[in-house]
């Protein structure tokens, strides 16, 4: 056996055990949830087209409450009648809302305030880009007419009911006077007698 390294039985068994151990450790690291940091490659889907439109990974800005608040004031232009935020997080086949979301982010990055972004959208897409009309001009009628009508109707009802109530009270008290056939002096004597009997 000269010129060749020899391997005794103990060394051979140790080598086998080492290989087996390494293989087992490798297998476990692939399976155990505790060792799934999410940094490794995710498995490929058999039919990606059946799982919906491919999505771009989300960023923390997608969850930014200020961005969401702006997008909830803006209507998606795909015709769904939803706001941009709801559409992009609901209708995953829509190609408009992700684009509008990117526009909002760009405008935000350019230093615009929420109101300026909304104004920019109105300028670009018209007033129907808003989920609700701004309360000025003719739009004020939209906001004020229902409440005004209800208030006026309630006021009118209160006035009419109040008048009727007073008239009814008067009608109830008026007949009571002639119903008792007695002079004021007799009534006063009656009251005194009643008071004495109570005592």
């Amino acid at each position: 056996m000269s010129g060749r390294e020899t391997l005794d039985r103990r060394g051979f068994l140790a080598a086998i055990a080492g290989v087996a151990g390494a293989a087992a450790a490798g297998a476990l690291s692939a399976q155990a949830p505790g060792t799934l940091p999410g940094s490794g490659p995710a498995g490929s889907l058999g039919d990606p087209t059946a799982a919906g439109r491919p999505q771009a990974p989300t960023t923390p800005r997608d969850d930014d409450a200020r961005i969401q608040a702006i997008e909830k004031r803006l209507r998606c232009t795909c015709g769904c009648t939803l706001d941009v935020y709801t559409c992009r997080t609901t209708d995953f086949s829509c190609t408009y809302s992700p684009q509008l979301h990117r526009e909002v982010l760009q405008l935000r990055d350019s230093g615009m305030t929420a109101q300026q972004i909304v104004d920019a959208f109105v300028k670009r897409y018209g007033e129907q880009a808003l989920m609700a009309p701004e309360p000025h001009g003719f739009n004020l009628a939209g906001y004020l007419v229902p409440g005004t009508l209800v208030t006026v109707a309630a006021g009118a009802m209160l006035w009419i009911l109040g008048r009727r109530s007073r008239r009814h009270d008067a009608a109830e008290t008026l007949p009571s006077a002639p119903a008792v056939d007695a002079t004021p002096e007799e009534l006063a004597r009656l009251r005194q007698a009643l008071a004495e009997s109570d005592a």
Partner: peptide
């Protein structure tokens, strides 16, 4: 609005909530 101003607008949940919740 379209008849009066010739402008298309959207009346969505923010409008209805503001008017109807009270």
């Amino acid at each position: 609005s379209e008849l009066v101003r010739g402008t298309k607008i959207t009346v969505g949940p923010p409008f209805f909530n503001r008017v109807n919740v009270p």
